[in-house]
């Protein structure tokens, strides 16, 4: 079965990104399931902030997602509107908004909600993590 993972909860004040990560691992360990894509929305987009430095004795959920995505060739999409309002900026948005810095972490890509429509249409199930 094809899944879209739709993540909404903040990586700090919720376990949405962590639960979704464990769910993704379980899906990828199974031969019957696959992930169409992962879409970060609302406060979950903060996971794509390259500047965050969690204490070393804590799990870095952003790095964990990046590694999982790379290993299994999964796309990590971040809603562009939700990201911009929270200061998660890629290079082209930096130029467009005449800023001097960008902050999008490696392995994540800013996309519009049209990408979510495409993912949902190509999935049997959408699982949300709040």
């Amino acid at each position: 079965m094809q899944y879209t993972l739709f993540i909404q909860g903040s990586p700090f004040s919720s376990k949405a990104c962590h639960s979704a990560y464990r769910f993704a691992q379980a899906l990828l360990n199974s031969t019957q399931h696959s992930i169409e894509g992962v879409f970060f929305y609302e406060d979950s987009v903060l996971i794509a902030n390259a500047l965050m430095q969690p204490p070393r004795d804590e799990a870095n959920i952003s790095i964990l997602w990046q590694e999982l995505a790379k290993q299994h060739s999964i796309n990590l999409y971040v809603c562009i509107a939700a990201a911009l309002r929270r200061g998660v900026i890629n290079e082209s948005e930096m130029v467009r908004h005449e800023l001097t810095q960008h902050s999008l972490a490696e392995g994540f890509q800013l996309e519009g909600l049209g990408t979510l429509v495409h993912l949902i249409n190509n999935s049997h199930k959408t699982i949300t993590f709040r």
């Binding site: 909404q8 509107a81 519009g112 049209g114």
Partner: peptide
């Protein structure tokens, strides 16, 4: 929170894509 607004945004975009 922004949740209600961001939820409504999704509904409008989905509809724009004729879903």
């Amino acid at each position: 929170s922004l949740s209600a607004k961001e939820g409504l945004d999704i509904a409008l975009v989905m509809a724009t894509f004729e879903q």
